[in-house]
Amino acid sequence: MSQDNATDASGSLTDSVSRRRFLVANGTAATAALAGCLGGDDGDDGGDTTDGAETVRVGYGEYETTINTGDLPDELFIYAVQTGWSNWDAVMDAFEEEYGVSLFDDQRTSGEALTNIRTNHPNHEYGAYNGAYSVGLEAWDEGFTTDYKPKGYESVPDEFKTDDGHVTATRQMTVAINYRKDIYEERGLDEPETWEDLKQPEIAQDLAINVPGAGSGLNAMLSINHAYGGDLDNLDPLFEYFEDIAEHGAEHRRNLDQQFTAGEISTYAEYDFGGLSTKYNSDDIPEEDVGVVIPKGPDGGEGATQVPYGYAMLQDPPNEDAAKLFMDFVLSPDVQELFFDGFVRPIRASEDSVEAPDEFPAAEQYGDAAFGIDQAKLLDKQQGIIEEILERSPLPGVEA
Rank of each mutant, 00 (worst) to 15 (best):
Thr66Gly: 11
Glu112Gln: 11
Thr55Gly: 09
Gly59Asn: 03
Thr83Tyr: 12
Phe77Ser: 15
Leu72Val: 11
Thr55Tyr: 07
Ala90Asn: 12
Thr83Met: 12
Val81Phe: 10
Tyr99Val: 04
Thr50Val: 13
Ile67Gly: 01
Gly111Arg: 01
Ser102Asn: 10
Leu103Thr: 01
Gln107Trp: 06
Glu97Ile: 09
Glu112Leu: 05
Ala94Phe: 03
Ile117Glu: 02
Val91Ile: 15
Gly61Arg: 14
Gln107Met: 08
Glu97Phe: 12
Met92His: 03
Asn123Phe: 13
Asn68Gly: 09
Arg118Gln: 12
Gln107Tyr: 05
Trp85Gln: 08
Asp105Gly: 06
Glu75Met: 15
Glu75His: 09
Arg118Thr: 06
Thr83Cys: 13
Ser102Ala: 11
Gly70Met: 10
Gln107Gly: 09
Trp88Ser: 13
Asn123Pro: 00
Arg118Asp: 07
Gly100Ile: 06
Asn120Phe: 08
Thr83Phe: 11
Phe77Thr: 15
Phe104Tyr: 11
Thr115Asp: 10
Ala94Cys: 13
Asp93Val: 15
Asn116Pro: 00
Ile78Pro: 02
Gly84Phe: 01
Thr55Leu: 08
Ala80Gly: 04
Ala80Trp: 00
Arg118Ala: 10
Thr69His: 08
Tyr60Leu: 12
Asp51Ser: 15
Asp89Gln: 14
Glu97Lys: 11
Asp105Ser: 04
Asp105Asn: 12
Pro122Cys: 06
Glu98Val: 07
Gly59Met: 02
Glu96Asp: 14
Leu72Lys: 03
Pro122Tyr: 04
Leu103Glu: 00
Thr109Ile: 04
Asp106Arg: 00
Leu114Tyr: 00
Val101Met: 02
Leu114Ala: 04
Gln107Ala: 07
Ala90His: 06
Gln82Ser: 14
Ala53Lys: 09
Asp93Tyr: 11
Asn87Val: 09
Gln107Arg: 09
Asp106Ser: 07
Met92Asp: 01
Trp88Tyr: 15
Gly61Ala: 12
Ile78Leu: 11
Phe95Tyr: 07
Glu64Phe: 05
Thr65Ile: 11
Thr65Pro: 11
Tyr79Glu: 03
Asp105Cys: 05
Gly111Thr: 09
Asp106Gly: 00
Asp93His: 15
Asn116Met: 10
Asp71Ile: 10
Ile78Ser: 02
Gly111His: 01
Tyr63Gly: 07
Tyr79Gly: 00
Pro73Trp: 02
Glu62His: 14
Glu98Trp: 00
Val101Gln: 00
Ala53Leu: 05
Ala53Pro: 03
Glu98Met: 04
Ser110His: 01
Gly111Val: 04
Asp93Gln: 14
Asp71Leu: 14
Thr65Leu: 12
Ile67Ser: 01
